[in-house]
Design a binder for these strands. Structure first.
Lengths: 353, 353
DNA sequence: CTGTTAGCGCCTTCAC
DNA sequence: GTGAAGGCGCTAACAG
């Protein structure tokens, strides 16, 4: 191959059009390329004076190691793939922030894979990870990427370390980081009961969602402990969207026997619900109390401000990234981390009848 | 180097622990590696039967080309760096979505660089791009990355194509995509004037922000065209945060002479402002009208629903990504694209006194 | 402590 | 239409 062999000619000085390579630095410093490499990777293995010469040469040449070459040689990309179901969902932005800052500090880059409900995308991200394009994968989507589940089931070790964030992935033996969903939902239910509410409705997230399942179980736990009976009519379907909340609100308006409080399994739905109620002249919390889950930024801003379960989202992201980084370093990690939540009492909940 | 020469031994069948390489496929199909490569890159240059054999072998081997090798060889990474000032800012999520889907469709991956106000991060992202880790950069942060400005100033061509999104970068000769900020702010100001308002206050974004400057000029344009005089006392400092809106609200509460309407240069501030006003018993829009800018998702949900300027955020992301992709393909692109906005009239604005 | 050397896996020119 | 072979830039093993 002679494609660009001309550029290979070894004159002194830097050809202006071309990025500096390790060779250029080596010549400038009067050492071998191996020494340059070592001066960068393990400075202690190089004599101080040589190191200085090399670093000077690097600065003079404006040398930046070529990541593709590095990665081909070392079989490491120093990149992590973060897979999420819907990028525009505001719930993820703070988590992403926590992930990004932690990865960055450890010298890793973050590649975003937005699933967008498309199996084609999912397959390509799986292939992407399988191809060694990334050193690890952080899953925020509640399930493994198509082919990964097969390779895990078949007992062959996953090609890259996987860590699940937010939504536990049942059956998969990968580290999982999540908040205490069940305990939090239980605590909120108990809190509502402690206000005197006897009919506590529950607005569900999408069925089949693991995280949702946990929250629902927490709600049941809470009812039981408060001595309230479970009423199927008080459990309404939803899907975490504002619209689901609004729909649920309309249902309440039409009902004769209204529950005195509605516990929504996320804030978006709670906000939509409140909006529908107040538009119809039903006062929150005087007529109906409403509680949410997540503590998104706008929970504090809506009127009335929403009582909800606070999730430490940034910490969640940090914890997930930290676990993955440890895994990449070959350190052992806990198989499951559960971060505590906190009930934030605001103005959307009041005493029950 | 004998590190893993053992694994290099060429037996038939796939050693289970190792990813398939192009060699494996070539052997399986009984052709050379060059033919495999061609069958993938330019199928028409390979005979149909050979192609079939190769594709079968690829499927059987579960072969996925190694991106690091590809990228080292071709000097292309098929990755784009997206630089943004603050990942947790909900304003960016839909833009990111538009970017991601467009890049994905074109076969590019998206790496996120969250600036987080840290010069260190900025420097590293600049180095990252300079190192050829990515084929192009999409800037959402309103300025060039440190070293980039130098290399552009010094007339050396930028090492990778750059495209600016959202905030124009003055002086930099790179393609810019943005919404009609000035025209939109003018239109909103005229709309407020058309409602009969004579004292239209303006709550600013951070000073020095280019985008903010445009909006402010649009506000001035609007005042002039409506025959209203500019009043320095009606221009208040802000910084795009909810808190700034709340602070501005408190100021209004304390004033004797209140403006009849406040045009906030983003929705967060408008929402904070409304919250502060209603808490103090000032009614929106009966006592004071409030308008925002951006049309974030919650603008439609707050009570009263916010009148604001809608930005086509997803399209913005798409357009930016498309321009960058064209640039990467060597096609010519317009130096500036301005996407139209739309005034969304909701309930936070009413007739002026 | 430093230099020499052999590839990492792929693509592409050149030759047939 | 296909094969042979070199090298993208770097680092790890080995030798000194």
């Amino acid at each position: 191959m002679a494609e660009r062999s001309a550029a290979r000619s070894s004159k002194r000085g830097l050809p202006p059009g071309r990025a500096a390579r390790i060779q250029d630095v080596a010549r400038l410093a009067g050492v071998s390329t191996a020494t340059v490499s070592r001066a960068l990777a393990s400075p202690e293995r190089v004599s101080p004076e040589t190191r200085t010469r090399v670093l000077d040469a690097i600065a003079k040449a404006g040398y930046v190691p070529n990541p593709a070459a590095r990665s081909l040689r070392s079989q490491k990309s120093r990149m992590v793939l973060v897979v999420l179901p819907a990028l525009e969902n505001v719930f993820f932005s703070k988590i992403l922030r926590g992930i990004e800052e932690t990865l960055f500090a450890a010298g890793y880059g973050m590649i975003i894979g937005d699933l967008d409900g498309s199996p084609e995308k999912e397959a390509r991200f799986a292939a992407f990870a399988a191809a060694g394009q990334v050193d690890g994968v952080l899953l925020l989507n509640g399930h493994l990427l198509g082919s990964q589940s097969e390779s895990i089931k078949s007992r062959r070790k996953a090609p890259v370390p996987l860590v699940a964030l937010c939504e536990a992935i049942p059956g998969a033996e990968i580290p999982q980081i999540e908040v205490e969903n069940r305990a939090a939902a239980r605590a909120m239910t108990l809190y509502l009961a402690s206000l005197g509410h006897r009919s506590i409705a529950y607005l569900c997230g999408p069925s089949g969602n693991v995280l949702e399942h946990e929250r629902f179980r927490g709600y049941c736990d809470g009812l039981r402990e408060a001595g309230l009976s479970f009423d199927r009519d008080l459990v309404w379907p939803g899907d975490y969207t504002l619209e689901a909340g609004i729909r649920a609100g309309h249902c309440i308006v039409e009902r004769k026997r209204r529950p005195s409080t509605v516990f929504c399994s996320n804030d978006e739905m709670a906000i939509g619900l409140m909006r529908a109620l107040t538009s119809a002249g039903i006062r929150v919390p005087q007529d109906v109390s409403v509680a949410g889950f997540d503590d998104i930024e706008f929970a504090a801003i809506v009127d009335p401000a929403l009582t909800t379960v606070h999730q430490p989202r940034r910490e969640l992201g940090r914890a997930g990234a930290e676990v993955l980084i440890k895994l990449l370093r070959g350190e052992t990690v806990p198989s499951r981390i559960r971060l505590p939540t906190e009930i934030i009492v605001r103005d959307s909940t009041g005493p029950g009848a």
